[in-house]
Nucleic acid binder design. Structure first.
Lengths: 349, 349
DNA sequence: TTGAAAGCGCTAACAC
DNA sequence: GTGTTAGCGCTTTCAA
């Protein structure tokens, strides 16, 4: 690889001048500028990233720390972040914690194990001289890993931060569930089953709130008998349906498409026709939803938007505070709305 | 961040000594060594990645250049590469070309557009001082982007390289299709439809070869009437089924699960019961396959293996050739076997 | 408008 | 064993 110095020699100018031309710093005569640009093009010169990062402060690089790149929400968000970064002339580099690969679901609450993985990565990130960090959670919860004096701007993606200067970008679970439930109610349904994840899970809690609010606003009584807490698995959907169907519901709301697959399993087994005898809706709009029979009415996650907004939030901070201490501000939570996708699994009652 | 120099000062030794201790280079007295290690622990010192890369030759970093991180095969392969790298003390950083995001499928053959994206990334990679590169294709084809004198070791993943020193790690399409077809034949099927992607597509060509070989080895005549070339879409599966069903097949082999979804659509429309009146099989073992009704018999892609093998291939080269020119060798193609997943969409004839 | 010199954090060669 | 020196490729004063 040709270096700046070499370019300078070829042009019979100093390294400084070449540097100036590249970065548009000092004024340079049109003539030398053109000559230098010309040589740069000819030689295919590319500034050495390492050297640049070593000396200067800004690398125009942001680090994405993803908890699980294999989680279905991650690739789309990452790609969206990268696209936004590219537009602003930043690059994004991805670190993957592989939490699930290491411990399946068993690491929850095990702070020690979690930190044994996160801390080295954070150190890496710091030593890479990135300008900022986007932390991409695999599922929603409160993440306390970045406290007030973390030396870099951080944006939390798909989870909530507890820190006043780490904004969070999350899906609007409550509203998503509210809209879905309202849709069902608008179609005449009054007894609507709800199959959630674990009770303490944030997605579950918020979506249940939305469900309740829709009920309430329509003068419908909330019946705890109609809600089932599962573990997000297909099996849980089956079990939930088994428990709820006898309660004479006319619709069931499974808060993940995968669980809803289990609801389908049960209903099919019992010969109850979805989209005719009963209405079933999901959440996530995973690819599988389109392949259900009948195709599943569900709620699409705004993954692209989340990535874009997170990137914008971070880049704004980076551009704004040129090295200065970021202004202390209130915690920011951006709730990104979901989108109801109407397909064939719902009937008017 | 505390620097090596600072650690040295605290310990009253030279920077060199600290460097030696960290890298286990020269001999150091137990005493100073322990003292230094102690201070490193206390201060949380972490070598600056940039400085290291700038001076030394090896960064213990490999770059993954992915064509499309959103492609369903990519995340698993990437995660697998990362896991293997981690085991050997390497880190992997991901670059995403976002080919599909930019141009959908329209960039094929448009070398110019492709290079307008690839070339800057390659330059980036070079300037990052990585030790090697894994190129992860979105789908199989021959990739000519890395010629003999590319300055870094490269491994091609999920596609074929044309260069004698760039090994390729690909799925064994031919064998996968052969085994599936043999399975069907073993169950008594003799007229088996085949729904492929575009004729010139490598996956299609190889899988068709496997299909033919199975037919041939069982003394069955290959009937071109039973094969349909589509475009990988669900719709193509539908169209293919529409064309092939009248030819009195007893089984249909769709070479992607998504296309097979279209086969299901058609069959359902016609009231033909899959897994009873007819057998249907897919390829890919995407998540959707489990949610088909009946659940789809298909062929699982060895994505984890591909990632692992690619990483091993690259790391072996890196460890072997310490900077020396890699030995010129014959092109290596590693074909990784797929796995037949038996579910409910097939019946004995 | 341009250049010389210093230095970012680290490692390598060579002395002591 | 340990320290000195030089330098990786670049940016940044500051002087010319």
């Amino acid at each position: 690889m040709v270096t700046l110095k070499e370019v300078a020699e070829i042009c019979n100018v100093s390294a400084t001048t070449v540097s100036n031309v590249i970065n548009g710093k000092a004024k340079t005569s049109e003539e030398t500028k053109n000559r230098i640009l010309q040589v740069i093009r000819e030689t295919g010169y590319k500034p050495n990233y390492m050297a640049k990062g070593l000396r200067g402060k800004k690398t125009r690089t942001v680090a994405i720390i993803a908890e699980d790149i294999e989680q279905f929400t991650s690739p789309t968000i990452i790609e969206s972040i990268m696209r936004s970064c590219e537009q602003e002339g930043y690059r994004a580099i991805v670190h993957n914690l592989r939490l699930y690969d290491r411990w399946s679901d068993t690491w929850y609450g095990k702070e020690e194990e979690y930190h044994s993985v996160l801390d080295p990565v954070v150190k890496d990130v710091l030593s890479e001289q990135v300008d900022g960090v986007i932390y991409l959670a695999g599922h929603s919860r409160i993440i306390t890993s970045f406290n007030e004096d973390f030396p870099l701007p951080v944006v939390m993606c798909y989870a909530y931060s507890n820190s006043s200067n780490v904004p969070s970008v999350v899906i609007d679970d409550e509203k998503g569930a509210y809209e879905m439930t309202s849709y069902l109610i608008g179609l005449g349904h009054e007894r609507i089953g709800f199959i959630g994840g674990r009770m303490e899970n944030i997605h579950t809690a918020k979506r249940l709130m939305g469900y309740q609010r829709a009920l309430f606003e329509n003068g419908l009584l909330y019946d705890p008998e109609l809600v089932y807490y599962g573990d997000w698995s297909r099996k849980a959907g089956y079990l939930g349906a088994e428990q709820i169907i006898p309660k004479e519901v006319t619709a069931i709301f499974g808060i993940s498409d995968k669980m809803t697959g289990g609801i389908y399993d049960y209903l099919e087994e019992k010969g109850i026709a979805i989209g005719r005898d009963i209405s079933v809706v999901g959440f996530d709009n995973e690819i599988i939803a389109e392949y259900f029979r009948p195709q599943l009415t569900t709620t699409a996650l705004p993954l692209k938007d989340i990535g874009r907004i997170a990137a914008e939030l971070l880049l704004t901070r980076l551009e704004g505070s040129n090295g200065e201490e970021p202004a202390e501000r209130d915690p920011v939570v951006v709730k990104v709305p979901c989108k109801l996708i109407k397909r064939k699994s719902v009937v008017k009652k």
